[in-house]
Simulated assay, not measured.
Amino acid sequence: MVGKIALVLAAAVVCAPVTAVAAAADPVPPVMAALGDSISAGFNACGWYVSCTSRSWSAGDDAGVNSHYLRMLAIDPAVKGHNLNFAVPGSTSAGLAAQAEKAVAAKAAYVTILIGAQDACVSEESRMTPVSTYRAHIDRALAVLAPTGAKVFVASVPDIKRLWRLGKDNVVARSFWAIGHICPAMLARASSDAKKDRARRDRVRERVRDYNEAMAEACAAYGPGCRSDGGAVFEYPFTLDEVSKWDFFHPNADGQRALARATFKAGFPWDAGTLTREPLASGRQGR
């Protein structure tokens, strides 16, 4: 009897880890899509005020960025060329459901979402999207994706106040922010130390934190098919060397690479494998 028990225990020790790994890993999806705003569109990452989807942290194919798409391609070559980017520069959370519909039409089995900066970066603080409205927009978009069973990864909105802190003493950065009216709610009167301006920046930062919390909660409600970055993007200690020198706001190639690295670690543990692959609907390639 003792011998039999020992054999059973030994088998459990050997088999348990294998079972856990098999349950945790997901096959690489056949089609992926990036949703969101200018950050996911790679805006200003390789040209003057234009999108540069090849350098998107999500669906780009630039080797220097090493996006989610390229990291998954290294695991399963079958995803090659099936990287779609429906992110729209300037988009707020209100436009996310329409992007999700495009992802569904393209049969995307993996979708990344990063949106909310433009909900906060408005002309006046009072015009920021209410948190409840932001959450409703996210829920609506996820409801579009849910029937397909798509895996969803949601990234947090970057800490815009950190950008202000890094650039407030840089005359070039301040000039771009002022002339381009870039994120006035946070970056207007960047050199001011007035109490009302300090309070305004704190409130905008808190609104971004609230957006990130709402996004994480919506992701949890979606179920195990959704992963959140746990605040990785918001907490990333980016520098001015990682933002475009054309606006001192959007991530450049180095910044996009940092986003890809920080977010992929928090995502799904992709494993080699196959899913049922159907003909692709027409879509804009992430190039």
Rank of each mutant, 00 (worst) to 15 (best):
G3K: 14
L9K: 14
A10I: 04
A12H: 09
C15W: 11
T19H: 13
T19F: 13
A20T: 08
V21C: 13
A25V: 15
V28C: 14
P29V: 01
P30D: 15
G42Y: 04
F43C: 05
A45E: 02
C46L: 11
Y49P: 07
T53Y: 10
S54F: 04
R55C: 09
W57P: 11
D61Q: 08
D62E: 12
S67E: 01
Y69Q: 00
R71Y: 03
D76G: 10
H82A: 07
N83R: 08
N85Y: 07
F86R: 06
A87K: 08
G90D: 11
T92L: 03
A97I: 02
Q99D: 11
G116D: 04
D119P: 09
A120W: 02
S123A: 11
E124Q: 12
E125Y: 06
T129M: 05
R135A: 11
R135F: 02
L142C: 10
T148M: 09
K151P: 08
L163P: 10
R165P: 06
D169I: 00
S175W: 08
I179M: 13
G180R: 14
I182D: 10
C183W: 01
L187R: 09
R189P: 08
S191Y: 12
D193V: 06
K195A: 15
D197T: 00
R200T: 04
R201A: 00
E206F: 09
V208H: 09
R209D: 04
R209Q: 09
A214H: 00
A218P: 12
S228M: 01
D229M: 01
G231S: 08
A232E: 06
T239R: 09
D241G: 12
S244H: 00
A260N: 09
A260T: 05
F264T: 02
G267A: 05
F268S: 06
F268N: 02
D271N: 12
A272M: 07
A272H: 14
T274N: 14
A281P: 11
S282C: 11
R284I: 00
